[in-house]
Simulated scan of single mutants.
Amino acid sequence: MLDIRNLDVHYRGIQALRGVDLTVKKGEIFALIGPNGAGKSSLVNALSGIVPSGGEILFEGEPLGRRPAHLRSRAGIIQVPEGRRVIAPLSVAENLELGRQAAGVRGSDAADLDRVHALFPVLKDRREQLSGSLSGGQQQMLAIGRALMGRPKVLMLDEPSLGLAPVIIKDVFRALVQLNREGMTILLVEQNARLALQTAHRAAVLEQGRIVHQGLASDLANDPVIADHYFGRAGMVA
């Protein structure tokens, strides 16, 4: 689904990513873990076209080149950003419609809305409520729902558990697993290493802009070096 080759990203003279090679297979959950400042958000922003990058990104076998962000989202690469970033003055329903329009989806939205409401019933109950008045967990559900309205082929999530209560984290990750069971490819950036490796099929560890470990998530979860470095720092969700 995604083939990333020798990816470099620079911010104002600082190199955030250095020669990253990564493959995300169709139908899998791929987790990217690492410390703050390792370059995880830079990677998903580069894939989304939000920041310029060097190297090559292939999507479904075709190079993205310099394709701008809005065309990448319309091709099916859709990101749920860190911090949720719902449009506070708009209602829940309007935020969901915005996700559909931004991705250029045509035709009826009934099936898409049914899918979102089945995953997150609270969004149906609060469809006329202003998004800025929702709790943090509800806003995260809305941000995911908004992305789903764009009919993504690859759903990328940047720190979806950040700032959420454990019970809400369980609900969010249960929804991600359900989406994957339905065939959706998911790229998950997550600082909670234990949770990420429990959820993903494969994973990579990013440190100082480089991939330092990569493989089956179960193998990385059982690696004592990774456990020593990351499990003690990440929040734990049973």
Results as ranks from 00 to 15, higher is better:
Pro152Arg: 06
Pro152Asp: 10
Pro152His: 03
Lys153Gln: 14
Lys153Arg: 15
Met156Thr: 04
Met156Glu: 09
Asp158Gln: 00
Asp158Met: 14
Glu159Met: 02
Pro160Phe: 08
Leu162Pro: 06
Leu162Asp: 10
Leu162Thr: 07
Gly163Ile: 10
Gly163Gln: 12
Leu164Lys: 12
Leu164Met: 01
Leu164Asp: 08
Leu164Ser: 13
Leu164Arg: 10
Ala165Lys: 13
Ala165Thr: 00
Pro166Tyr: 03
Val167Glu: 03
Val167Asn: 08
Ile168Val: 15
Ile169Tyr: 03
Ile169Thr: 07
Ile169Leu: 08
Ile169Met: 09
Lys170Phe: 05
Lys170Ala: 05
Lys170Arg: 14
Lys170His: 10
Lys170Ile: 00
Asp171Phe: 00
Phe173Lys: 01
Arg174Ile: 09
Ala175Phe: 07
Ala175Asn: 09
Ala175His: 07
Leu176Gly: 05
Val177Lys: 14
Gln178Arg: 11
Gln178Glu: 15
Asn180Gly: 04
Glu182Arg: 15
Glu182His: 13
Glu182Gly: 11
Gly183Ala: 03
Gly183Pro: 06
Met184Pro: 04
Met184Val: 00
Thr185Arg: 00
Thr185Leu: 08
Ile186Val: 10
Ile186Phe: 08
Ile186Pro: 02
Leu187Cys: 00
Leu187Ala: 12
Leu187Trp: 11
Leu187His: 05
Leu188Val: 09
Val189Phe: 00
Val189Glu: 06
Val189Ile: 15
Glu190Leu: 03
Glu190Met: 07
Gln191Pro: 02
Asn192Ala: 10
Ala193Arg: 06
Ala193Ile: 02
Arg194Gly: 14
Leu195Lys: 02
Leu195Asn: 14
Ala196Cys: 08
Ala196Asp: 08
Leu197Lys: 06
Leu197Tyr: 06
Leu197Ile: 01
Leu197Gly: 08
Thr199Val: 00
Thr199Arg: 08
Ala200Glu: 11
His201Gln: 12
Ala203Arg: 04
Ala203His: 11
Ala204Asp: 10
Ala204Lys: 07
Ala204Glu: 11
Val205Asn: 07
Val205Met: 02
Val205Phe: 04
Leu206His: 01
Glu207Gly: 08
Glu207Tyr: 01
Glu207His: 03
Gln208Ile: 02
Gln208Ala: 14
Gln208Trp: 04
Gln208Gly: 08
Arg210Ser: 15
Ile211Arg: 11
Val212Tyr: 12
Val212Ser: 15
Val212Glu: 07
His213Phe: 15
His213Ile: 00
Gln214Ala: 15
Gln214Thr: 10
Ala217Thr: 02
Ala217Ser: 07
Ala217Val: 04
Ala217Pro: 10
Ser218Ala: 14
Asp219Gln: 13
Leu220Met: 08
Ala221Trp: 06
Ala221Asp: 07
Asn222Asp: 12
Asn222Tyr: 03
Asn222Trp: 04
Asp223Glu: 02
Pro224Tyr: 00
Val225Lys: 12
Val225Glu: 14
Ile226Pro: 06
Ile226Cys: 10
Ala227Pro: 09
Ala227Ser: 12
Ala227His: 13
Ala227Glu: 15
Ala227Tyr: 03
Ala227Trp: 05
Asp228Ile: 00
Asp228Asn: 10
His229Ser: 10
His229Glu: 11
Tyr230Ala: 00
Phe231Val: 01
Gly232Ala: 04
Arg233Met: 05
